[in-house]
Amino acid sequence: MLDSFILPVCRVSAPLILAALGGMWCERSGVIQIGLEGFMLVGSFFGAVYALNTSNPYIGLLMAGVAGMVLSSLYGMVVLRYRANQIVSGTAINLFAMGIPPFFSKIWFDSTGSTPPIPTAAQFQIAPLWITLALVALSAWAYHSSRFGLRLRFAGEHPDALQSAGVSISWKRWQGILISGFLAGLAGGTLSTYLSSSFIRNMSAGRGFIALAAVILGKWKPIPTVLACLLFGVTEIAQIRLQGVVLWGAEPVPVQWIQILPYLITIIVLAGAVGRSESPKALGNS
């Protein structure tokens, strides 16, 4: 059970959790974060590149976070400094990010969007799980009991109150955006250095959007968000386990039905219990 189910679920959930925590911080500060997907993609590419070059997965992972953060600073500049529409800019960031790995892989590896395999010595065994766990604990603590969390939450709930208390709104939002970039970058890094052994084209494959869905299902709170990620992790593992398995009738369940499960769950939950009032009040207003 542990090896065949729980561990794999944790493995596939880890990147979702990291990205979702980033998304949560960002949206809590009042900035919509569609760009997680893009941050993850560049994170997974640069994570692989640095793991390859330094033969040290930790440096790879760190640089993955840095890459995500650099891209997120572009997003921050556009939406905070130039007040661009956040959803549109996030979409643009995602498009932009899709062009980045092929651009560099062509120059560095002469390939159209993948890296050579990372040697086993430069791959992770289990460490990212512990890192994720630590970051979950840190996030939950910071969210509820730290000055940082309190102020950042007010940037999304009632920015005027924050400002009249003498705290800069835009600095809190910058922090939220940069954290989301770093954590989503880390999430991408685990994809290429932990879940597999190289970067491949479009490696994030929609996980950034799933993470965003988890933030919403988790009502922008750390622990429920993590639980939502685990739920998606379970469906992903179930999808692999159920391939070719006959559940009813004579035919095995088509893999596509299980693939769409997380998305269906998200829509159903969105349409069901969650009311709009749960979201940070000033989300999207800048």
Binding site: Y82, A84, A92, T112, G113
Partner: peptide, 18 residues
């Protein structure tokens, strides 16, 4: 894939009102 970069930058250039 350069086209993605161009597209992304064009949108950002257009929506960055300020």
């Amino acid at each position: 894939d350069l086209s993605y970069i161009i597209q992304g930058l064009i949108i950002l250039g257009v929506v960055a009102e300020g």
